[in-house]
Design a protein around this nucleic acid. Structure first.
Lengths: 261, 261
DNA sequence: ATACATGTTTCATTATGTGAAACGCAATAA
DNA sequence: TTATTGCGTTTCACATAATGAAACATGTAT
């Protein structure tokens, strides 16, 4: 790889072990060593260090290693920092009870939209995207809603090196196309994903804005496309509910409406 | 500290930086260096490595460093592994709607009970413990419920080096006391916390057991003590609901009832 | 019994991480 | 303007601290 001299080798290796254990689950030092091309004694030393710090446990019967829940514990503290979930929860509940569909809350994590909370639909057929997962922002309504209220230069910086994957025929395929769409979303106030990420899945999303006018997060409602006509009366009334919730939440985060830049 | 030679210094330092940023939030290299007694150039190199791997971001305006959400993302994958939350959710919902109190799901993380999911009470006065946080197992009903279905030797190993903190007058204060209580819980099938952790807070908890009979997790209902008489009819009927839910969930995890060891 | 897995420990070698000092830049003060 | 202070960053000579081959310990399967 790039031999950037101001990166610490052993730290990179240790993090790669954590990531590897996060993908697989229990792995032995030999297996880890083979996968990451390290001597097993090196792996053993690194893994021991991780265990000492509480990030990894050893299964006493198989002797293999697995990640602890420390990551989860620390991760939730990061998310809590904004008080986002706590503050958003009442609105999520309200939207869920009114629409009976799945509602989601996401933040922007670099060029990806990360789902941090959801309430599942009570319907049998429903949208279900896992909390803690993240997906390319350009392919989801949540992502687009946030990007539409993010400075243009930052959006360009985020995506100029990224490739655009066509998940479905309607997925946005280039930076220019994205920027054009963001302009429309900004004017309209909400974003729509009509099977741009997963065939059959539709979503509407609105930004939660802070004092500066930029988005801190976004709210969405997602449902199977067949249930409502695109742009129909039912869908538009859900948009109304969504916009109202987003507006109120934005107020809690210091956004004083009006301004439309 | 202990100069254990099979720990990798730079990895320990890097992890301590992550932990430090997790407590504080945005910190500069100088501040980090002062707190951890490292030269700022060393901190800079480590932090750069963490950024390269996506664990840390730099605030472009203040130039300070903060943790990314990668920890959260990875942490949730670990929790998902068992499918615990997904499987437990319908039971949590059922308990919540029947009791109107806060219901919780926890796993054992070493000697601590870690809350991984909850549904909040609809009451104005309610118990609310944060998801992702962990507390000493001996002081909570969830923890005790799990420990009661954990091999005795393992319990001893977990607590022989731990101190027992008296959070309230009724908190369990020694290993012997804990072992005696676990015996009772095992016989009865559920655990009770009557203001042993937080004054005014009461909980009942039951274990979710797997094929071996040991606990994988536990379910609880928590509420302000004043709302129900201890051991009264209302509380006992909640115990019934809880035991029923725990029994069914245990079946999903391969526990074939009957066996009482 | 034998061979072959595994994880662990040892230890000589030097690559690799270290911190003092210099640097560049921005904000503030004189 | 010209110092001054404070910050993150870069450089570099030095030696510490991380490395991997090999030996070891233990268990499992042949």
């Amino acid at each position: 790889m790039t031999k950037n001299s101001n990166h610490v080798q052993s730290v990179i290796r240790a993090l790669e072990i954590i990531e590897f254990l996060n993908e697989k689950k229990e792995q032995g030092v030999t297996q880890i060593g083979e996968a990451l091309d390290l001597d097993k004694s090196t792996v053993h030393r690194l893994v021991n260090t991780l265990r000492y710090k509480g990030y990894v446990n050893q299964n006493p019967v198989t002797q293999k290693y697995l990640n602890s829940y420390k990551l989860f514990e620390m991760g939730t503290i990061e998310i809590d920092r904004l008080g986002l979930i706590r503050r958003a929860n009442p609105y999520l509940e309200h939207l869920a009870s009114r629409t009976r569909e799945t509602v989601n809350l996401a933040i922007l994590d670099g060029p990806r939209a990360m789902y941090v909370e959801k309430i599942e639909s009570t319907e049998v057929i429903k949208a279900d995207i896992g909390v803690g997962r993240s997906y390319p922002a350009y392919a989801t309504s949540l992502g687009k809603a946030m990007l539409a209220y993010t400075p243009r230069e930052k959006v360009i910086r985020l995506f100029e090196k990224e490739g655009f994957t066509k998940f479905t025929p309607d997925t946005i395929g280039s930076l220019d196309e994205l920027l054009a769409e963001l302009k429309i979303i900004h004017r309209r106030g909400y974003a729509v994903d009509d099977q741009e990420f997963i065939p059959g899945l539709a979503c509407i999303a609105a930004p939660i804005r802070m004092g500066s006018g930029d988005a801190v997060a976004a709210l969405s409602i997602s449902y199977p496309r067949y249930r409502y006509k695109s742009g129909g009366k039912e869908e538009l009334s859900m948009v109304e509910l969504l916009l109202e919730a987003a507006k109120r939440l934005s107020a809690e985060f210091g956004y004083e409406g009006g301004v439309n830049d």
